[in-house]
Simulated scan of single mutants.
Amino acid sequence: MLSFTKIFRRGYRVVRDSELIQILNSEIKYEQSTDQFKGHTVGSLGNFELSWDGKRSKDVVLKRKCDSGEEIALSAKLGYGNFVELGENSNSLPFEALMKICIKKPELRSLLQFDCVIENKGYGLSDFSISRVCYLPSSSCLENEVYRGPLFSDLDPQLQAMYKEYLMDKGIGEDLTNFLILHLHKKEKDQYVNWLARLEATLSKPPS
């Protein structure tokens, strides 16, 4: 026979779990019923194809092969919080996105790598900035300690502008960045709701 203390502890634990389950259910219902992205510009992939979008991964990968034979690979994931105050009606998304772009010329092993940030401008709009441009002898050097060039902000402003125009000519413009930053926020929300649901299911499972 269970002692009174053990019965009390078990009953207290059941009540505590029940309260937590109610809070989790409330949060799940709120997230599922709230359209946080209403009014945001959907954007489009343009000539890119969605190559990877794992349900449990943070990033997405896009690829494109140009008529010239150039191959472009782009990966993106949510970055840091956007703390810029844009006003109550700005419809601002809370996070910026980190974007890495690799461009390979046909019949060459070397490639160009651009590290970029997609910035939420509010009112359903976005833009991207370049933080670094690297020349890599081959794709095997992606993780190696090779010289990656100066900070992008240290380059001549005219050269900075030309690099951005170069990427825009490759199809990396506002339409694509709108798609990416919205898609990544929706992806993060889906993962959050699934995480809440797994917690709720674990707590709801009766002890064996």
Rank of each mutant, 00 (worst) to 15 (best):
F4H: 11
T5F: 06
K6A: 08
K6G: 02
I7A: 12
R10Q: 13
R10A: 14
Y12T: 06
V15A: 15
I21Y: 02
L24V: 01
L24M: 04
I28D: 01
I28V: 07
K29I: 08
Y30M: 15
S33K: 08
S33Y: 05
T34P: 13
T34G: 12
H40I: 11
T41G: 09
L45W: 05
E49H: 15
D53S: 14
G54N: 14
S57N: 15
D59R: 10
V60F: 12
L62R: 03
L62H: 08
C66M: 12
S68C: 09
G69K: 11
E70H: 12
I72G: 03
A73N: 07
A73W: 02
A76E: 02
Y80V: 04
N82T: 03
L86E: 05
S92P: 03
L93G: 13
A97L: 12
P106Y: 02
C116V: 00
I118D: 02
I118Y: 01
I118G: 15
N120T: 04
N120K: 05
K121A: 11
K121Q: 15
S126N: 10
R132W: 07
P137D: 10
S138W: 05
E143G: 14
E143H: 12
N144W: 00
L159Q: 13
K170V: 02
G171M: 05
G171C: 09
D175E: 00
L180A: 10
I181D: 11
L184Y: 01
L184S: 06
H185C: 07
H185N: 07
K186C: 09
E188G: 04
K189L: 13
W195E: 07
T202A: 14
T202L: 12
T202F: 12
S208I: 10
